[in-house]
Amino acid sequence: MKIAIASGKGGTGKTTLSTNLAALFAEKVQVVLADLDVEEPNSGLFIKGDIEREDIKYKMIPEWNESTCTLCGLCQKNCNFHAVIQLGSQILVFPELCHSCYACSELCPTDSLPMIKQRMGQLKQFRNKNMTFIESRLDIGQEQAVPLIGQTIEYIEKNFSSSTLKIFDSPPGTSCPVIEATKDADFVILVTEPTPFGLHDLTLAVETMKELEKRHGVVINRHGIGNNDVLEYCEENNIPVLAKIPNSRKVAELYSKGELVYTEIPEFKAELEKIETFILNFQKS
């Protein structure tokens, strides 16, 4: 069972929800929490545990072999991303621009650009009683999140049984990284705020989920501030609203310190329990 937590824009409370929900579940069952926001993984600030595993993650890039190269220039022409540049009598490779398509390498007439492993980031696995927390972090300077997200999901598939509850903290937005993080999920929870910005970004996220044919529901964060437009939108479009987390300065304060919220604020916990019930029912059906 895979639940992805996503939002149309950053800063809506996605990480707060993911970490608290996972911790609440872990009071009773085994749960895997994965931070797939690999450019800015923040869940780790809230979840403490013992490190169990550290894996380096790689992507494949070409490496120039000067001795066999005839400087024919085909590699530069074959790279649509300007990741291979011929500079006089040398070939330069820009790993951050490379999409690992293999075209330059396999189409090189003298095999002078063999593909080699290059580090792009790191996966860490922590354990705290019932909770396994997995965090992947892209190295500074690496620009492509999608391959690392894909490899992280693959790792989880391989190492945990399909019945284990998995919560994916997804990257924000509606572009490729979010799609990669949500496309295998059984259900997607979209976190939003009841404001015009929140509504606008939610509609984009909902359109994306429809395109992917993903079942989805909404959690309204900071409920009480703003207006009712998000609720009305969900009603009109038959999108279930799983919970309404009350607006509170105290949540922001706890978040700023890197602390879990639900243990301190009963109203917050009550809303989390609604989401928990919804997920359990969803799992049964």
């Binding site: 991303f81 300007h82 990741a83 540049i85 500079l87 006089g88 330069l92 820009f94 621009l97």
Partner: peptide, 15 residues
């Protein structure tokens, strides 16, 4: 017209 990689392309031209 280039979405990404404008820097390397221009530097190559400059070279």
């Amino acid at each position: 017209n280039e979405a990404h990689g404008a820097g390397p392309k221009t530097s190559q031209q400059l070279f």
